[in-house]
Amino acid sequence: MKIKGNVIRYNDNVDTDVIIPARYLNTSNPKELAAHCMEDLDPTFVSRVKKGDIIVAGANFGCGSSREHAPIAIKESGIACVVAKSFARIFYRNAINIGLPIVECDVDVDEGDVLTVDFDTGVIVNETKGTSANFAAFPPFLMAIIESGGLLAAVREGKL
C-alpha cells in the first residue's frame, strides 16, 4: 500500500475536541461531521483540504475523548493518511479499527510538501525536500485489520 499526497501541518497535542467539537456530536453522520472537522483549531481546513491530502502532526495526536467521530471526520474529509510523532492510544486504535491509515514517525515537512508513504517498505519520502524517514511496520495482527478495511470486516472474515 502506497499513499501520495500534499501535507497539511499541525503541532503537538491536537485533541479530539478541536478535531470535532462536542457541540456537533449530536450526529454520527460522517458528512455532517466532516463539515466541521478541525474547526476550532483551523477554520480554513474544511475549505482547503483536498482528497488524498496527508495530515502531519507532532506528538500525542488525537488526545482526549474516545469519540470515533474524530477519525471518521478526518477520513470523510478526504485525508488519506495521518502521520504523527506519536498518537494518543484511543485515537490510534479507532483509526485502525475504521481503516484510516496512520503512521507513527517524526518527519521533517512543511505545509504543502508532497509526501509518499509506503506501508510495504516502511519508508516516507518527502518528494519536495528530497528527504526520507523510516517507520516501524505494523504488527501482523494490525496489518490484517487494515487490509480487511477495519476491525469488523476482519472479524467477519474470521481473520482474528
Partner: peptide
C-alpha cells in the same frame, strides 16, 4: 476504546 471496538 472506540465505538467500533464497542461494537465488536
Amino acid at each position: 476504546i472506540g465505538s467500533t471496538d464497542m461494537a465488536a
